[in-house]
Every structure is written in structure tokens, then in C-alpha cells.
Design a protein around this nucleic acid. Sequence first.
DNA 1: CCTATCGACTTGCGTTATGCAAGTTGATGG
DNA 2: CCATCAACTTGCATAACGCAAGTCGATAGG
Lengths: 139, 139
Amino acid sequence: MNTKNKRPLSGCPIDYALSVFGDRWSLLIIRDLAIKGVKTYAELLDGWEGISTNILAQRMRHLEGHGIVERRKNPDNWRSSLYELTPKGRDLAPLLSEIILWGGTYNEADAPKSEAFNIVQSDRGGFERELRQTDNTTD
Amino acid sequence: MNTKNKRPLSGCPIDYALSVFGDRWSLLIIRDLAIKGVKTYAELLDGWEGISTNILAQRMRHLEGHGIVERRKNPDNWRSSLYELTPKGRDLAPLLSEIILWGGTYNEADAPKSEAFNIVQSDRGGFERELRQTDNTTD
DNA sequence: CCTATCGACTTGCGTTATGCAAGTTGATGG
DNA sequence: CCATCAACTTGCATAACGCAAGTCGATAGG
């Protein structure tokens, strides 16, 4: 994940992209923020996959440093921060679609296709448009 | 990267996809195979990014185990193996396009946009069609 | 006041992954 | 019969990750 950027990047866009989110967790965090719109640290913590808190903290710092997420104070709760995707982060929507389509096609573990797969397959444009909106807290 | 699949997968297609190629190297290997069509171990080794041989070996085993790449003997050289993408691997073409577009848009390190970015941007369909062909050794 | 609590972390420590260098294997060319 | 080449494996050091527990500061309850 190149937090310390040990290896110089090659200049290839893929190499750059992987230096930003090429690890086991970043895209899952981005997925959660894309779908939910805005989340607190605690909400991100208890996603299905169960990221541990130290990893989440450093991943959020990394993503914030790369301009993928933004942190701000929660006006309703003094002690809570809110995280949300920046435009740069929201521009990952088509990438998320493709991953969902590919993963949904080839993952045999869950016989019944995931909801995400069905949504993206039936209305990819709508899915991406929704993800691009800042206030898609349909929850 | 979940080689040992320590954590059970969530069923989310993204989680599955990341269990297959969610690390710093897999997509770079897949990129090289997609663009070059077929490569030997040695050719993969001296890509621009400089993967180390032990990592390459275990990544190829992992990708082969997940049905992304196939290994076969080189008919021209008894001691060399040839690696190429399976259909499942070639189906990652649209994902590669999206990564290239995103990475090319936001990577400020290389001011002159990478060739890959220009190609995908001007003719994404052609790019993906080419990647999907088995014998695209235009080299 | 005094203590418990909640949200967002940090710290410690053990395990896994990655990076670097060197060694292995086995057919062939010289 | 020795060096070479392609595709690895092995050893060892560092970085990343996973789990459990601790910190900190404002507030709500007693």
C-alpha cells in the first residue's frame, strides 16, 4: 500500500491507483462511504468485514492524505466526526461498478447473487449517479 | 491478501474480488499479461515496477489457483513456461480501463499523460477488445 | 464533585506479507 | 565437465496487519 512510498511509482496510472487503494481494505471503506454517503468512524468500524480499529485509523489517514475522503465535525454530536468521499473519491464509482460486476459474476461462494450485483447489472447508470451524489443517505 | 483466507468472505462481490487481486502486485501482473498477451516468468520479472521473484512466484500461484492465469509450456523453449490470462482474467479488461482512467486523471506525478490513459480515453472499446483476444502479441 | 460513558482513536505484541540476496535444479552449448 | 539460463526456493530483515487493551476529554447521572 505504499504508505511510506518506498518504491518510486512507475508512472503507470494503475500503479498510481494501487498506491492509493491497492490493499485489502481501502475499497471496502470506499464502498461503504459510496453507498451510505456519510459515515462516522464507529459506523465504518462495524461493517460486515470487521476491520480492526488501528487499521481503519491509518487507512482513513492514508485516504484523507490522498484526497479520497474528507473528515468534518458532526454538527449533531460534538464527539463524532463524519467521513465522506471527495469528488476524487466519488469518481471511483465506475470502478466500483466494474468490480461488483466481475466479483458478482465469478464469486461462487454466494449462490444467490448479491444485491449490489443485481442493482449494478440492472441499472448501472443509476447506481453510479446515486453514488456520485453527496447526500445519498437513503438510510 | 488472504492467500490463506483467514477471514471468511462477506459475500460482497468487492470483498471476493479483493481476495483475488486486492494487493499491491496482482493487477500489475494482470495488466502486463493483458497488454502483452503472453509472458514468461522472466518477462514478468523485469517489468518497470520490479517485483521480486519470491513475490511473483507466490502471486502467480495465487492467481493460477483462482483461475485468473494459466501456465503452459513454451513450445519454442523447453525450459520456459508461458503465462496467459484465462477468460476470467480477461474479463477484468473493463476494470483495468476504469483504473487507468481514474489513475490517469488524478496522478499528477507524470505530467504527460501515460500512453495507456490516452489509448483508453480515445478508444476504450478497442482497447478492451484487444485485451480480450488471446493472441494480441503485438510486440 | 465523582464516576461511568461514549467516540475516536493509540499502543503493544504476535503473525503474515513483502523486499532483497543468494541458492537450487536440470538440460544444453561449448 | 563446466557455465548458463529459466524458473523457482530459501533465509532473513522490515513493513503491514489483526487482536486486545488503554487513552482522552466532554458530559450525563448520582
